[in-house]
Design a binder for these strands. Sequence first.
DNA 1: ATCCAGGTCGGTC
DNA 2: GACCGACATGGA
Length: 290
Amino acid sequence: MPERINGSEWRTPLRTPVRHPDFDLAATLECGQAFRWQRGPGGWFTGVVGKRALRVRQVGDTLEGDVDSHYFALDIALRDVVATFPVDDEPLRVAVQKHWGLRVLRQESWETLASFIASSTKQIVQIRQIVAELSRRFGEPLRDGYHAFPLVADIARLSHKELWDCKLGFRAKNLLAAARMIDGGKVDLRPLPAMEYERAVEELLKLPGVGEKIANCVLLFSCGFEQAFPVDVWIERALRRLYFPRRKVTARQLRDFARGHFGPYAGWAQQYLFFNERTSGRGKRSSVCA
DNA sequence: ATCCAGGTCGGTC
DNA sequence: GACCGACATGGA
């Protein structure tokens, strides 16, 4: 099938279609963990992973196109993950059922860190714009007008204004300083996956613009810490609504609850609850703005 | 117009 | 420790 996009041939050859019943491509790509995918005609998603422009779609149980099974974490048995979730947790059970097949991707750590430094008090649609702009201006050109996410060293060399012009606002200085710390060897992302969780958090907190929430995003989405549980405004809202209705609890209490309650795959539970909260229409805002 | 967005940080009490 | 406002910008 010689698919063409914008008149130019895509990536050749497309791989053999793969059957995978426990995977929901759309939910996985649109739940807010990745910022570089776009849904196009025919149900095809296009995006960039590392230095590859990929195109993939799901038809029923079948995946077509560039199926990167490592990136999509297809080796993980979803039933085993769900089996670790607490029994008698009805809200989580409902969320999992509603979005069955949603998986936590294995993303690249620098891109994840940079994207989430850019994310603070930004809407997801704006984060996507910023990441796209950074890539377009400073990332390695790939085929068909796509660009890789810029390397740490390339961001580190930029001026404050060059980053500012990518709509980063007050986050520009944080991204620049973080890039320079990593590029200069003050912080090393590579050993994070092998560290103890607490130690890895501590390491990331050295970076400017990185607090508990963003550190947990990086550890969950790009370092294999399935227990990491980022608490943002959406999850906070969901936890209050689902587990502490009409009770006053502090943010700290919510974090402690989450860490003790959801188990070794708390991060996966977080994604189901997060996506559910954003799509259920019960939050203060009723629509997903992506 | 006004509020709020996948927060973080440095200042208060 | 918990609480508070500043920080930039744009979407709803």
